[in-house]
């Protein structure tokens, strides 16, 4: 089978290493240009099953702000991002929201939870 070189930019950390990945069909043969081993994991994942952490907001009733920021507990498959956003849009929480609250469990059957990023106290609360 012929070998092929693919260029990627690792997004694991702010360093943004430029990776050159040698693949044979679906198999990663070699990863170059990475400064740490997370680059190898990223390259392997990005070619087989690209995933992204998704952060967005969800509506909150009775909070100090009308929205609570939320995030996916781990990266979700890239093609499902807009489906996930549609799911989040259906929801309205009631304050108080606590950091780490599960906003959606096992979103879209991915086994991944959507969690609140911070506390949103109810309007009358002082904390």
């Amino acid at each position: 089978m012929t070998q092929e070189q693919k260029k990627l930019i690792c997004i694991t950390c702010p360093r943004g290493c430029a990776l050159v990945v040698t693949v044979e069909g679906e198999t990663v043969i070699k990863t170059e240009g990475n400064s740490c081993k997370r680059g190898v994991d990223y390259a392997t994942g990005e070619l087989k099953d690209p995933r992204r952490m998704v952060t967005t907001t969800v509506r909150v009733k009775g909070g100090v702000h009308p929205l609570a920021p939320v995030y996916t507990e781990s990266p979700i498959p890239k093609p499902r991002i807009f489906d996930l956003l549609a799911e989040v849009r259906k929801i309205e929480l009631t304050a108080p929201v606590k950091f780490g609250d599960v906003v959606i469990e096992n979103v879209l059957g991915t086994g991944i939870n959507v969690l609140a990023s911070r506390n949103i106290p109810a309007k009358s609360e002082t904390s």
């Binding site: 950390c13 702010p14 952490m53 952060t55 920021p69 995030y71 950091f99 990023s117 911070r118 506390n119």
Partner: peptide, 15 residues
């Protein structure tokens, strides 16, 4: 990533 060796959101980092 440097302070906590974790990938956090801004509000979580602040919290």
């Amino acid at each position: 990533l440097q302070t906590f060796k974790k990938d956090l959101t801004g509000p979580t980092y602040a919290q």
